[in-house]
Nucleic acid binder design. Structure first.
Lengths: 358, 358
DNA sequence: ATGAAAGCGCTAACAT
DNA sequence: ATGTTAGCGCTTTCAT
């Protein structure tokens, strides 16, 4: 028994709200630095020095204050602390939403940050794709002033940073520019995907392209066209359509493609989500994959292996990209001289959604 | 070709650091409220009123200020704003680290938060499991004062909150207490898993239990024992061992179990990560799964389907749990009366890591 | 309708 | 060695 697509993206059902219990508990108050100071019989300045390990405090005082801090469970308020010091040891990862792509990056970043002395703060603007372009600028403005020491921005379209604030872009809008970036070899990956379909005998190959404002989407389409050209196969322009990078957007595009009288025998989807969407649409209208249609995706998010049939796709080393971007950010902050553009390889992952034509 | 375990948890290789480019770009300064005020020719107080939609500002002034805000790209600093107002429209999800379990919750929460008017801030203490107990308390203290209006805490062991601050615990240390909680039916799920192994004819069944301080781990072990007892099968205590909930911790335990002279024919691992670890160990010492050993996990994280062989497991509706916990938190903040304990069902997901004995 | 001023919790000169 | 003070960017009385 394999898990069908319905289970891959769990439906968040609207459940009945049965009001039955009123929740109301008495809580202790938040303890602030002044509480520590009063209890320890010193000034807040002294507590601050102890907290931050500054010189000029008697050993006995240090110990007493630390004891009180421990007893009271004091923890510095991040907002107040950063407002003043502009240093928090917190690194941000800014995403539009938490979906399979960004959460894979998060896993890699999380592993990389362990032991670095930094903590990780992932911030989602809450806007889905395109819902509000410029989310990255707004999120950055909101946090960069004080809360975080640097940021990794995932799939930004607008890039603009503040003085002295370090930013690394993952899979950015533009190709490598002045901004430090981490991405994978989208062009080569697309060639890989297309060549694979060609090697299976496919000639009528469709392409659902991603967000046109994303460099990675453009490179994937370019790779597709290059591979087709190299093979001497003409691209039927009616088979190349924008689908976006999300489930919903791609569904309509996939439906258009499959409704064509001379529909493609294979589709190279711009990413796994749109490929999964294509699988969904194909099933709905009774086209068997891979028997009647081959589908290949891009990304290799975990979900790509969970669908039926398991998706053949191009792997981007997402977790590693997350780790590399965080490492790059840390190095940048530390002033380490290093190459600020990292491009990682892609590779073909053959599963079961493609088969030879015929 | 399927993806082996080595690819599931991507190795973050230590790459050569080839210093080649120094990055240094000139950035514009952060624009603050006083900049807007000066440009618009009003006071910061007036700008604040406009930003927060307060009454008492002339229409013409409102428009002029909004224009300036737009032109300058002003965005309120989260730290400063919250320090003063104690209201941010940001909800926190506190986790020890970003691993498959918490990131699934994140996906569900992210979907639920869309359109709610809230933004999501996921905070990782950076400590791995057990590295520093009390991470939840410290993270909470750090953020709850100002930055977030409420929090979902994932797998907390220590629960303690501040006055007037709303917290929802997912998969908490203790059973349902005064604190609002979201979990799944761990006991029933464990019975399901054990019965499945029993139905396959297994009698020497081992159990790698999770963090003993976690209620869910205890319930899974209890369910295991209950199912065994109900079937009239004695539990060999040497086959029940603590492994923790992470890859590393479980590996040693799995190795011990499999090195036993009369080793188990089946293992019910406390969660998918320890099950995957068991698969790994089995392969390393040449025990074939499922031919010589059946393994069943718990959670159904996406990674469970990616390993070889694909893991049979007990599904927790993780994304839904994330969504429910966020909904609960939002309702709590809004003062909605409702049941503050949500328990979701578990179900068996049969893949390929178990087979009948003999 | 607008602005001056106080203060949120904290850090960093600067005094003592 | 410790405390006093100013102020980070913002919101909110309270005057004007």
């Amino acid at each position: 028994m394999s898990i069908g697509i319905d289970n891959v993206f769990e439906t968040v059902a609207t459940r009945p709200r049965t009001p039955s219990i009123i929740v109301g508990v008495a809580f202790p108050q938040r303890v602030k630095m002044s509480d520590v100071a009063r209890t320890a019989g010193v000034s807040v300045a002294t507590v601050s020095k102890v907290v931050n390990g500054r010189y000029g405090v008697a050993q006995a005082t240090v110990e007493r204050v630390q004891q009180v801090i421990h007893d009271l469970g004091y923890e510095a308020d991040l907002g107040a602390q950063s407002l003043r010091s502009h240093r928090t040891n917190v690194l941000g990862i800014l995403v539009a939403e938490f979906e399979p792509f960004s959460t894979e990056l998060l896993k890699g970043a999380s592993r990389e940050v362990a032991g670095s002395g930094y903590q990780l703060l992932a911030y989602s603007s809450g806007d889905g794709e395109g819902a509000a372009i410029g989310w990255e600028r707004r999120s950055l403005a909101r946090l960069s002033g004080t809360l975080i020491d640097g940021a990794v921005i995932v799939t930004p379209t607008v890039v603009e940073t503040k003085h002295g604030f370090h930013v690394v872009a993952v899979d950015p809008h533009t190709g490598p520019s002045g901004l430090p970036t981490v991405d994978s070899d989208n062009f080569a990956g697309a060639v890989l995907a297309t060549n694979y379909l060609l090697s299976l005998g496919h000639r009528r190959i469709g392409h659902i392209s991603g967000r046109p404002d994303l460099e990675s989407a453009r490179l994937r389409e370019a790779g597709f066209r290059q591979a087709m050209a190299d093979a001497g196969v003409a691209v039927d322009e009616r088979l190349v359509r924008v689908g976006g990078f999300r489930i919903e957007g791609a569904a309509g595009t996939a439906a258009e493609l499959l409704a064509l009288p001379d529909r493609p025998t294979a589709i190279f989807a711009g990413n796994d989500l749109s490929a999964i969407s294509t699988l969904d649409v194909a099933r709905a209208i009774g086209i068997a994959v891979p028997d009647e249609l081959s589908v290949i995706g891009f990304d290799n998010v975990p979900e790509s292996a969970l669908v039926d049939p398991p998706l053949t796709t191009i792997r981007q080393p997402l977790q590693r990209m997350g780790a590399e971007s965080l490492r790059l950010l840390i190095d940048l902050i530390a002033g380490v001289e290093r190459d600020a553009h990292i491009r990682l390889p892609t590779e073909l992952v053959v599963r079961a959604s493609c088969r030879p034509i015929g």
